[in-house]
């Protein structure tokens, strides 16, 4: 998917553009949300429980982890802690978006950032300096409504999908994230951090398969390798760093 450079648009056009750009992600998110809802029903959550979680947390991967833990009867604090761990990556994503939110009043930024998901962030970052709040909400509200509707529908449908893996639906999220990843390819230099991340994630995942530490481990390993690659750049500024 390419986003062509274009002259400034009205907020309405920007919102519509965001909505259109969100549609391929909606196509991937709906089966994902439906799958989560059906798992939640099996874990004993009601449609209201699921709807509230999707409406207030609005973070897919962490909701999968939360539903799994709730189904096992884990303590509330452990579930909240797991949600925090899975979503720690938002800190790093938000940091990369910081230049786009410079000058936006804190309350408006705080509300807009509620909608930041992996997909929202990836699409918005690709807009570059031309990112507008209207575009942001076009993407965000579209994904929000699709997520809310699909997770609640999945819970209501309950055990309709007896074996999601048989339909390949469990692969949807892998494919979506790989497509997003392809958007971050910057040539061969992207490879070492990605390989380091994969190695670290696989190693940590092997040690704690149910946990979410592998995401943090991969992020740190990939970041460390990239930092080492980039250490020589901008030497003239190194003295004031």
């Amino acid at each position: 998917m390419t986003i062509p450079a274009s002259p400034p648009k009205s907020p309405g056009q920007e919102f519509a553009l965001g909505t259109v750009h969100a549609l391929p992600i909606v196509a991937g998110a709906i089966p994902f949300g439906f799958l989560l809802g059906s798992l939640a029903a099996k874990a004993g959550l009601s449609a209201i429980d699921m709807g509230l979680m999707s409406a207030l947390v609005f973070a897919g991967s962490s909701q999968f982890v939360a539903v799994e833990l709730l189904g096992k009867g884990s303590a509330g604090l452990a579930v909240v802690g797991a949600i925090l761990l899975v979503n720690l990556r938002h800190l790093l994503m938000g940091a990369t978006l910081a230049p786009r939110f410079r000058g936006v009043p804190a309350a408006r930024a705080g509300l807009a950032l509620f909608f930041m998901t992996d997909e929202q962030w990836a699409l918005s970052l690709r807009r570059g300096p031309g990112l507008t709040l209207a575009y942001w909400y076009g993407v965000g509200l579209t994904l929000y409504l699709a997520w809310l509707a699909s997770t609640v529908a999945g819970t209501l449908a309950g055990a309709l999908i007896a074996d999601p893996a048989a339909w390949g639906l469990d692969f949807t999220f892998i494919a979506v994230f790989l497509c997003l990843l392809a958007g971050f390819w910057r040539g061969v230099g992207s490879l070492p951090p990605w390989l380091a991340s994969a190695a670290a994630a696989l190693a940590v995942h092997a040690l704690s398969p149910g946990g979410t530490w592998h995401i943090l481990a991969g992020a740190l390993a990939g970041g460390a390798v990239a930092g080492w690659q980039g250490r020589g750049q901008g030497k003239e500024r190194a003295s004031d760093a």
């Binding site: 990369t96 992996d118 990843l181 990605w194 380091a196 994969a198 670290a200 990939g222 970041g223 930092g227």
Partner: peptide, 9 residues
Amino acid sequence: ATPGAVLVA
């Protein structure tokens, strides 16, 4: 590089 690394992980 962190976003790509997070997606890979």
